[in-house]
Amino acid sequence: MSAAVSSSLRPWRFAPLNPEACQDGKDSSFKGVVFDVDGTLCLPQNYMFQEMRSVLGIDKSVDIIGHIRSLPALKDRTAAITKIKDIEQRAMVKQVPQPGLVELMDYLKSKGLKRALCTRNFETPVNHLLKTHLSQHEFLPIITRDTPDILPKPDPAGILHIAKEWGTKPEDLIMVGDSLDDMTAGHLAGAATILLLNDHNQALKEHEHTHFWIKRLDDMISILEYGIAEPKVNPKDDDGDWVTEE
């Protein structure tokens, strides 16, 4: 399933989740958060992609999934997928949760907000991460590389599917990730996007598909508590205070 929604970067507004910070008394239309996995819920395991390209015999300019899809023979596609799964399964035991992961998830759970996953990882390492580090939290639906009939990011189909399952509009969601694919998928779906910064994605702070950026996952708590109106504004000012909606 593939779908795209035209969406220009716009001020994204919602009522602060902290009742004391609400000035107009309006309820928030914010329904939940969609998360990427590798590099977002856990620290990046970039070495995996180098290994994948090596075993597939492709260079870094070639998209891994696109390459596999382009293989003409089913047996070749199956063999390539098996190699990728083997690398991910070896790497999953080395997953390290992102700083602030549990704190953010506990906060979202306390507010009754929905959580879902949209990742290009296979299902096994995703389930390992959830079982090992987030066993008290529920993510529904979970879109992985194994999910049939939904094209992977940067196609927005996964996010649109999640919004439909939740019975809400994509505009009421946030997509959180660490890559351009994450930002593009969220933007095309019509959702707000939050970039989790690392040493390799700093340039994406200024990309047209990035609404906001954070340094740690639990930085999102104050964003949601107090609300943000303008895109391209880091939620903290130079003095470390949170910028709130007037």
Rank of each mutant, 00 (worst) to 15 (best):
G57W: 13
L180H: 08
N127G: 11
P72A: 10
H207Q: 10
S54P: 10
D27S: 14
N198F: 08
A192L: 09
A163E: 05
D239T: 14
T40N: 07
M183T: 02
R77C: 13
K164A: 15
V93Y: 13
L180F: 08
P156N: 08
H207D: 14
N127S: 11
D181K: 09
G167E: 07
G177H: 00
K109T: 09
T119P: 01
S6D: 11
H67N: 12
V34W: 00
G158K: 02
P170L: 04
H133G: 01
G39V: 01
W242Q: 07
D76W: 12
A80I: 11
V243E: 09
D218G: 06
K111Q: 13
S70T: 05
F35A: 03
K26C: 11
A189M: 03
A157Q: 06
H200I: 11
P72M: 07
V37C: 09
T144A: 04
K83P: 01
G57Q: 11
D86E: 15
V34Y: 01
L151G: 06
W213T: 01
A80Q: 05
F35G: 00
H161N: 13
V96E: 14
H128Y: 13
G66H: 11
R216I: 08
R115G: 02
Q202S: 14
P19H: 07
V126Y: 00
D238L: 14
F30M: 08
R216W: 04
P141V: 01
L180R: 05
M105H: 08
D106S: 11
L140M: 15
P154C: 14
Q23M: 10
Q95W: 08
R10Y: 11
R53H: 11
L101A: 09
R53Y: 08
A203S: 15
I142H: 04
I228A: 05
V243Y: 04
N127M: 14
S29M: 12
I142K: 10
W12V: 07
P97C: 13
I159C: 06
E246P: 15
K114V: 07
A4K: 11
H207P: 03
L188F: 14
L104N: 00
A192K: 00
I81D: 10
P99A: 10
P231S: 12
M175H: 01
I64G: 01
E103Y: 03
L71P: 01
F49C: 07
M183N: 00
A203W: 10
K131F: 10
L134N: 02
L151D: 13
N198G: 09
C42K: 04
L197V: 05
I87Q: 02
L101S: 02
E20V: 05
L108E: 03
W242C: 04
S70M: 06
P99C: 10
Q23A: 10
L134F: 04
M183Q: 00
I162N: 00
N201V: 03
P125M: 08
G158H: 03
V126Q: 01
A3H: 09
A15D: 08
M52E: 06
T147H: 07
K75D: 15
R145T: 03
L43E: 13
M92Q: 13
K94R: 14
F139V: 02
R53C: 10
A189S: 12
E246L: 12
L74P: 10
F14A: 03
P170F: 02
L104R: 00
R13E: 08
A73M: 14
S61H: 14
R216E: 14
